[in-house]
């Protein structure tokens, strides 16, 4: 009898393990799913700035040409452990110089490595999954032109259970979607372009939206601010609700991204300073599109209590 129970438990455990293995399997694109596309590195550069790749993959506070050296190495101290930002320069040994187009698209849009393992969503593929494949291919064409840097970055140091990479598959089942986060009923082309830039490459929600206990974004608090993942304080509410940027006109939002001066002639600070410097490289129409979208999202009050501004 006891033996039977043991066998039953063993069978159940194996079944659960098999189920876990099955539902956490990475789901990369197949080569046949890549569209025929002749890559445009000029659009790729635009995507590079919109996506803010330098903010994490270049050295901290890098300026000018140094922002194009994507050697990684930055350490992100989070509640899950330490993430170490990888080298994504085109160095064939220590960077991603040896990657195929398919490898790149799967990494950026599916969070799957060339070896078929999950990446952690510290790489914001939960946003990049909304990108057009063509834009991602253009991005790779541009990044292939950047200087290779030979630097080997150590792996992440995460706590259990987060160090079980396969578990990321569960996270993807819960949170990975290529559908827009905000319905723009009757949205005009400008706002729709803005939605693409903000929700896709710009990955604004990754910092500006609060997360649940598993680290998934809370869609009902979209862009309404969040705790600062890199320290104390908060990331601001960028909807037009209470505490947000309702007082900024579309023109003022676009101008702030371009010049670095907000409507009260304060400059951007903290992590947003580097983001603004990237956004300033986008054409005016893209900045206006982002502004149009931010004015169109549902206005929400601050999701997190924060001090009234100042220095």
């Amino acid at each position: 009898m006891l033996k039977r129970a043991a066998v039953a438990i063993a069978v159940l455990a194996i079944g659960l393990a098999a189920l876990f293995w099955f539902i956490t399997a990475p789901e990369p694109l197949a080569a046949a799913q890549l569209p025929a596309h002749s890559p445009d590195p000029v659009n790729g550069e635009r995507m590079f700035h919109a996506a803010g790749c330098s903010s994490c993959h270049a050295a901290a506070q890098a300026k000018g040409e140094d922002k194009l050296k994507l050697a990684g190495g930055l350490e992100l101290n989070t509640e899950f452990g330490v993430f170490r930002v990888p080298n994504i320069s085109p160095d064939p040994d220590t960077g991603i110089g040896g990657w195929s187009d398919l490898d790149f698209v799967n990494a950026v849009m599916r969070g799957v490595s060339p070896g078929g393992a999950h990446y952690y969503p510290a790489l914001p593929y939960a946003s990049y999954t909304r990108m057009r494949v063509e834009d991602v291919l253009d991005l790779k064409a541009y990044m292939d032109t950047l200087p290779p840097v030979q630097t080997r970055v150590a792996g992440h140091a995460l706590r259990f259970p987060y160090n079980v990479r396969r578990g990321v598959g569960l996270w993807k089942r819960l949170y990975l979607t290529d559908q827009p986060a905000v319905e723009l009923a009757g949205g005009n082309d400008l706002a729709l372009r803005g939605r693409y830039l903000v929700e896709g490459p710009g990955h604004c929600a990754e910092c500006h939206t609060s997360r649940d206990f598993l680290g998934g974004l809370k869609p009902d608090l979209w862009l309404a601010g969040a705790p600062n993942p890199e320290g104390r304080g908060t990331i601001p509410n960028i909807t037009s609700g209470d505490g947000g940027i309702g007082g900024w006109s579309e023109g003022e939002i676009a101008e702030a991204f371009k010049s670095g001066f907000k409507p009260d002639f304060d400059t951007f600070g903290g992590q947003m300073a580097a983001v603004q410097q990237d956004l300033a490289r986008l054409p005016d129409e893209d900045l206006q599109a982002i502004a149009a979208y931010l004015k169109a999202v549902p206005p929400l009050p601050d999701a997190v209590q924060r001090p009234a501004g100042g220095s």
Binding site: Q61, G233, T267, G269, G270
Partner: peptide, 12 residues
Amino acid sequence: CQQCHEEFREEN
């Protein structure tokens, strides 16, 4: 302004 705010001021 910009450089000091980037390094020494939080954006909240």
